[in-house]
């Protein structure tokens, strides 16, 4: 029984089959990469997993639980966190506040105690801050702790978004193009973070990525998509050598 399974999932927008009968499974503790040309349906798969879209067919199973139809806001509580392609941070809040929002799915204090800020709420807040400090230490974000997101450079925002996802204490982490918008060195650093997340924190990672050097450096298995269908699935060298995949990227007669 694999850790995460997508069974023949499909979604249609109007007449377009953005994701068409895609099946894959992810083992616990591995880094699983999804590659493919623009519009191949990679991000759509993430949106299906995080329940922003409802699949028209198929089934999603995580850790033995069917998550195909649960409410979108419950996904984080189950241990699935994600980042976004174009960064969806809370721009008018500080780094610390953003990371604290990552703790939301672990807050159990009743709303009455929050309104009056009873000692239970105070204790919970302090506990959240301790967890957040762990993530700040892990990602070396100390110097940005109180900075507003709107004033941060793009590369740092990427790390903050990663940190926010880690604050939910996920078991499965979805990274949507972690290297997009980053330069070569920042991409390399991102690769190290992903390896650390896998080895030190033991978190399973699914990532959508364009940068093949990052993919081959960190991922255990790769799935290549085109027009919503699976082209190839295997280790990075296998997929990179697959004639179908080469044709999809470079073009040419099928």
């Amino acid at each position: 029984m694999s850790y995460f399974q997508a069974q023949e999932i499909a979604i249609q927008f109007g007449g377009i089959r953005a994701v068409d009968n895609v099946t894959f499974d992810v083992q616990q503790g591995e880094v699983f990469a999804i590659i493919g040309p623009n519009g191949a349906g990679k991000t759509t798969i993430f949106n299906l997993i995080s329940r922003i879209y409802a699949p028209t067919a198929g089934k999603l199973v995580f850790d033995g639980e069917d998550i195909t139809t649960i409410a979108p806001h419950r996904i984080a509580g189950l241990g699935i966190a994600r980042t976004f392609q174009n960064i969806e941070l809370f721009a008018n809040a500080s780094v610390l506040q953003n990371l604290l929002i990552g703790r939301h799915c672990h807050s159990r204090v009743g709303w009455m105690s929050q309104l009056a800020f009873l000692p239970s709420a105070r204790r919970a807040e302090i506990a959240h801050r301790e967890k957040v400090e762990d993530v700040i230490d892990f990602l070396e974000l100390q110097r940005y702790r109180d900075a507003l997101i709107a004033n941060l450079p793009y590369g740092v925002r990427k790390i903050v978004e990663l940190g926010r996802a880690l604050c939910t204490e996920p078991k499965l982490l979805l990274l949507d193009e972690p290297s997009s918008g980053l330069n070569v060195e920042e991409t390399e650093v991102m690769g190290f973070w992903i390896e650390d997340i896998k080895k030190d924190l033991g978190i399973t990672v699914i990532m959508v990525e364009h940068d093949m050097s990052l993919v081959s450096a960190v991922s255990d298995r790769v799935m290549a998509l085109n027009y919503g269908k699976v082209l190839a699935l295997g280790t990075p060298p296998e997929v990179q050598g697959d004639p179908e995949v080469i044709r999809a990227y470079i073009g040419g007669d099928p």
Partner: peptide, 15 residues
């Protein structure tokens, strides 16, 4: 605040 700044990521954070 999260809802104000980005509904979609607020939701994926469990809100």
């Amino acid at each position: 605040v999260a809802i104000r700044d980005s509904e979609i990521s607020a939701q994926s954070m469990g809100i």
